[in-house]
Amino acid sequence: MMNVLSVNAPAHIQDLGRYGLRRYGIGHAGAMDTLSLRAGNILLGNEENAPALEIALGGISVSFERDTPFCITGALYHAELDGEPVHSYWRYTARKGQVLKLVRAVQGMYGYLCVAGGFDVPEVLGSKSTDLKAGFGGHEGRMLEKGDEIPLGGGAEHLGRVGIAHIPFTNCIHLFPSSEYGAFTEQSHIHLFHKPWLLQSDSNRMGYRFDGHGHNLELKQPLEMLSHAVQAGTVQVPPGGNPIILLADAQTTGGYPKIACVAAADLGRLAQVRFGGKIRFKQIDGAKAAKLLRQNEVYLNQVRKIANENS
């Protein structure tokens, strides 16, 4: 069991998400940065889809009722185990009764506390992820609170200390044109790919909102659209002209024109940009997007090699 001693940040259980149900209006939820979640699980010898604790920016303190290997991935955190420094992307074993304190994220937005065996929460509709909008999955369908007790899975009780390279942060996100790209003016295309965009503070797990400081995206002529299916990575443009990028908790349908889509390999990197950060978008094609995915897999293969050599 893991006991939550204090929490001052949005923290909830997420795995890789809930897929195949969007036609019923059920979103996929899941980790905002799936690459970081996979890396942490691989380092601990877990299945890549094992549920972990996602924490946004702030802190949480927990204790363990048995020896528990763990690691922190995603955002780089100031963290301590019984007062001793703990580094992100390193594997440690917490002894029974020790207190792990994640103080704050030093760089990045979303951190992942992965434990050996994952968290033993109920599977709902094929996933253990928390759907915060619908109120199911994870731990009672909600964010964690002080006093919560989270069951641990049946993982290893001791693993040696070892570290891996952290996933680099970036403010350059790759996009490829989507279905209504041609309906926007040429000047809008130039603005999208050659101007910085400010990530607004009203962004969340549903979507990241951007301000172009007057460099709005405009249609060539008014466009009436029926509601249609959307998914994480879709770049929608509301009438105001400032784009919204849909993310893990995105709705299943939308009616705004879609100018572009984020390369799947970059979704986690986008999620790690902090509110108020400036982002530049770079246009790519499908072949380049596939290459970026392969590069992510190369990184994970390196993590597998390190984990296997130090199991």
Rank of each mutant, 00 (worst) to 15 (best):
M1K: 13
M2Q: 09
M2P: 09
M2K: 03
M2A: 10
N3I: 15
L5E: 15
L5T: 06
S6H: 07
S6C: 00
V7G: 00
V7Y: 10
N8R: 15
H12G: 10
I13L: 15
D15L: 08
G17M: 13
R18Y: 12
G20P: 08
G25W: 06
G27K: 14
G27M: 11
A29E: 01
A31R: 04
M32V: 00
T34F: 00
L35F: 07
A39E: 08
I42K: 01
L43C: 02
P51W: 01
L53R: 04
A56S: 14
L57H: 10
I60E: 02
I60D: 01
F64Q: 10
C71H: 01
T73E: 03
T73R: 06
G83A: 08
P85E: 13
S88I: 05
W90I: 09
R91E: 07
Y92V: 08
K101F: 08
K101W: 02
K101Y: 09
L113Q: 02
L113M: 06
C114R: 00
C114I: 07
C114G: 00
V115N: 02
G117L: 12
F119L: 15
F119S: 04
D120E: 15
V121H: 03
V121F: 08
P122N: 06
E123V: 15
L125R: 11
S127P: 06
S127R: 09
K133D: 10
G137T: 04
E140Y: 13
E140R: 15
R142K: 14
R142Q: 08
L152S: 07
G153H: 09
E157F: 10
L159S: 02
V162F: 14
I164H: 10
A165P: 02
H174W: 00
L175T: 12
S178C: 10
S179N: 11
S188Q: 03
S188L: 06
L192W: 02
K195S: 05
W197H: 07
S203N: 07
N204R: 02
R205I: 03
R205S: 01
R205M: 01
Y208I: 07
Y208R: 03
F210S: 02
D211Y: 09
G214I: 11
L217W: 05
L217Y: 05
E218Q: 14
E218Y: 00
E218A: 12
Q221V: 06
P222K: 08
M225Q: 12
L226E: 13
H228C: 05
V230C: 11
Q231D: 13
Q231K: 13
A232N: 05
G233T: 03
G233R: 09
T234D: 10
G240M: 01
L246G: 03
L246M: 14
L247E: 04
L247D: 01
D249Y: 08
G254P: 12
I259K: 08
A260D: 09
C261G: 05
D266H: 06
D266I: 03
L267E: 01
G268M: 05
L270Q: 02
V273Y: 00
R274I: 11
F275R: 07
F275L: 11
K282C: 04
A289D: 07
K291M: 10
L292C: 01
L292H: 06
R294E: 14
E297S: 06
V298K: 04
L300I: 07
Q302D: 13
V303E: 04
R304I: 04
K305V: 11
K305E: 15
I306V: 15
I306H: 03
N308V: 04
N310H: 13
